[in-house]
Amino acid sequence: MGDSIRTIERGRYYEDFTVGDLYRHHWGRTLTDGECQLFATATMNAVPLYFNQLHAAAMGHARPPAHPLFVMNVIFGMTVEDLSEQAIAHLGYWNMRFPRFCYPGDTLICSSEVLDKRESGSKPDRGIVHVRTTGVNQRGEEVCLYERKILVKKRASYGAGDGRSAKGQVIRQGES
């Protein structure tokens, strides 16, 4: 009926990050048997722990666990809307750990803290944001932690919207 158009833009620009911010990534995701095994095999991860019930049992697991890099990728994916949908590049990973195995049926939930940010030394239209992401299971136990650095656009150079849709769930606001 109406003729108004609401254009949605997702993702934070450099200016939208404040050191100390803690974001809750809202989706959450339950792992299934099929996708766990498919990820291991499709990435040529020829390790029977992830696709052979008899071998997993011999290694002390009731069932084949999810491959750690599948767990990391599922968590990473859930963080993108809040952290890197407006990124120019994902630069790398630091301090990645997997304190517990995950299994099909587990539900992953994650949050990220902004550790640091700085403007690019060479290009004024971008900056680097340093974050720490923590993934937990349905019992709140940590299953995957890592830091990453993201090269992200500045709103001043590229921003189209007013930033309303970038906010997401902020658990704790850092001090500017």
């Binding site: 020829a46 290694m59 990728n73 750990r97």
Partner: peptide, 29 residues
């Protein structure tokens, strides 16, 4: 993250076929 997983997959048979756990990844670029 998929480049990372593909490269780990290429390395898997020689490095982690008999691994009990992935303890850490660091200094990744």
């Amino acid at each position: 993250g998929i480049v990372f997983a593909f490269v780990c997959g290429l390395a898997s048979e020689e490095t982690d076929e008999n691994a009990a756990a992935h303890l850490s990844y660091d200094e990744g670029r």
